[in-house]
Each structure stands twice: as C-alpha cells, then as structure tokens.
C-alpha cells in the first residue's frame, strides 16, 4: 500500500494537517498505549491519515514513524486515502455473504465505477467492505454514511443512489 499524498501537497496544507493533529494530541498522554485512540481521533477529524499527521504523532510519542505506519496498515479501520463525501460499506459477514452480499458489492462497484477501497473521482463516494456489523438478521446489509441499511440488493443499490441524486438536485 502506497502513501497517497496527492491531497497534502503545498506546505500550507501540510502545516494545516500538522496543526490540526497537534490540536488533537493535546488531549492525550505521551505513551504508546494511546497510539490507536490517537489515530482514531485524528482520522475522525481529517477523514484519513496523511503522512504529515503520522510524523507528528510519531514525534509526540517518541517512536519511529515506521511504528505508526505499521499500526495503521495492520488495522482495517485506518485509511491512507482521503474519503469521499459519502461512505458506502458493504457488509460481508457470513449471513450477508450467503444472502448475496458479494452480489451487492458488485452492484455498488458497477454503479460507482470503483473497486473496494477506492473513492470516486468526484470525491462523492468511497466504497469498502466491512467484516460484519452485527445486523445479520437484515442481511444483506450496506452501511451508508454510518446508517445500516437492511436487505440491500442490486435494485436497492440503485434506489439508494437515486436518493442521493435527488438530494443533490434539491440543493443545486
């Protein structure tokens, strides 16, 4: 996995990321046990974990940058790319899989034109799968912007996307 740093290019943007990260770090003690909660908070604020943020965190905890990077790439929760405006998480738990979650994932891929772990070029949607959200009884489930949607089959994928489109048209 390569670090995608297209987002943070100018020194100005880099400084901004550093400053935002430092703001969050103020609330934490300088021990490595806080690394995961720090990463969660920083990602919550920035949407992803840019290189500048990683370096800032490493400095704060007095650990090598590679240790921060290895933790980030170990856990599924952390992302190195900026997210889209809306997040689509297709559940691939056992019940969802057996009820066609993989078909639903295909439908999302087809409609959004992106693969798992990617963001649409217009930054509207990012698509990923999730191991299990524990709503097995509503299988197949897709979590759309933190809200679990039950029984999402290919036709409902179209319906959900239509709802976004209507929302967008209303605004413009």
């Amino acid at each position: 996995m390569a670090i995608n740093n297209k987002e943070v290019t100018t020194t100005e943007e880099q400084a901004k990321v550093r400053q935002k990260t430092r703001q969050i770090l103020k609330r934490f003690g300088r021990k490595q046990g806080n690394l995961v909660p720090i990463l969660q908070k920083v990602q919550g604020k920035l949407g992803y974990l840019p290189r500048e943020a990683m370096l800032e965190i490493a400095k704060f905890l007095s650990i090598p940058g590679i240790d921060v990077y290895s933790v980030i790439t170990f856990y599924n929760q952390f992302r190195l790319n900026p997210p889209g405006k809306h997040s689509i998480r297709v559940c691939l738990g056992t019940a969802c899989h057996m009820k066609g979650g993989y078909i639903t994932l295909d439908a999302w891929k087809r409609r959004l034109g992106i693969d798992r772990g990617e963001t649409t070029p217009d930054r509207e949607f990012d698509l990923d799968s999730v191991a299990c959200v524990g709503c097995c009884v509503m299988a197949p489930v897709t979590v759309v912007d933190a809200k679990p949607q039950g029984k999402v089959e290919p036709t409902k994928v179209d319906g959900l996307l239509l709802a976004f489109e209507i929302e967008r048209e209303k605004k413009s």
């Binding site: 021990k31 490595q32 046990g33 806080n34 690394l35 995961v36 990463l39 969660q40 905890l61 933790v71 170990f74 856990y75 599924n76 929760q77 952390f78 999730v130 191991a131």
Partner: peptide, 18 residues
Amino acid sequence: SGAFVCGEETALIASLEG
C-alpha cells in the same frame, strides 16, 4: 480497529499497548 485476530487475548494486549 477492525482486526479479527485481536479477539485472541495476546493480540488484544498488543493492540492495547499501541
């Protein structure tokens, strides 16, 4: 943070230790 192996107690400890 989304790692199945952390259900294993020693892995969970490692993740608590950052």
